[in-house]
Amino acid sequence: MAFWDYANPTRFLRLVQVVLPWLAGLCVGLFAVGLYMSFFVAPEDYQQGDTVRIMYIHVPAAWLCMMCYSVMTISSLGTLVWKHPLADVSAKAAAPIGAAFTFMALVTGSLWGKPMWGTYWEWDARLTSVLVLFIMYLGLMTLWRTMDDPIKAGKAAAVLTLVGALNLPIIKFSVDWWNTLHQPASVFRFDGPTIHPDILWPLLVMAFAFTTLFFVLHLMAMRNEVLRRRVRSLRLRAASAAQPGPAAAAQPAE
């Protein structure tokens, strides 16, 4: 089974070495096409004018902040259930990237909202859930940072990620409920049942481009994390070799 073959970090690093250039090339190509389409091919909206072009980065960013959390959830299952050695590496590497994409979704949503709603921030259900998700990402990153031992930090973060994954639908549902109570009239909606193909195609290309961008960044961050752990275990070895005795025996074998 290929999945288990890459449990070995060295083999994983070799895989990254092979895959990364292709993925990066694909990502650059998709962005070239996607940006060209979203600026020059896609028509302006009859209602929103050119501001609809913000959608081509806002929607993919919002999609990615969900996808990134799903990747982290699967990785957390990998940590706790299957005890796959690369799973917590993957979860840790994904968190800052997810936070960055969530930040993008918030910023573009707010910059889109100013011309559309007249304010930078509207307590709109979608934006509010994304804001809560942003806080969860930052909390997870802080949890990773505060714990010294990567194995323990990985398990703690995995528990929190899974609880968050259970909670996210509830949060989404409750924020929707709260939002409809407080502002029944929806100010404007773009996700009608029909999206014109002229808009849909650039959006799909951009979404695909963002997804490959995520995987490029994720693989690179995972490689860094594997190297960081290697450095850590080498330092522990060096310290225990320099100071033999009971202290050396007490070092956790990593």
Binding site: L138, L143, N167
Partner: peptide, 27 residues
């Protein structure tokens, strides 16, 4: 329980818990 090993876990605890407590507060 996540922050039990940390020296000053109180602030981090609040940050971790508040997003999860949003639905309770709303309802």
């Amino acid at each position: 329980s996540l922050t039990v090993t940390l020296r000053r876990g109180g602030l981090l605890l609040a940050i971790l818990v508040i997003p999860l407590a949003v639905p309770t507060l709303i309802f």
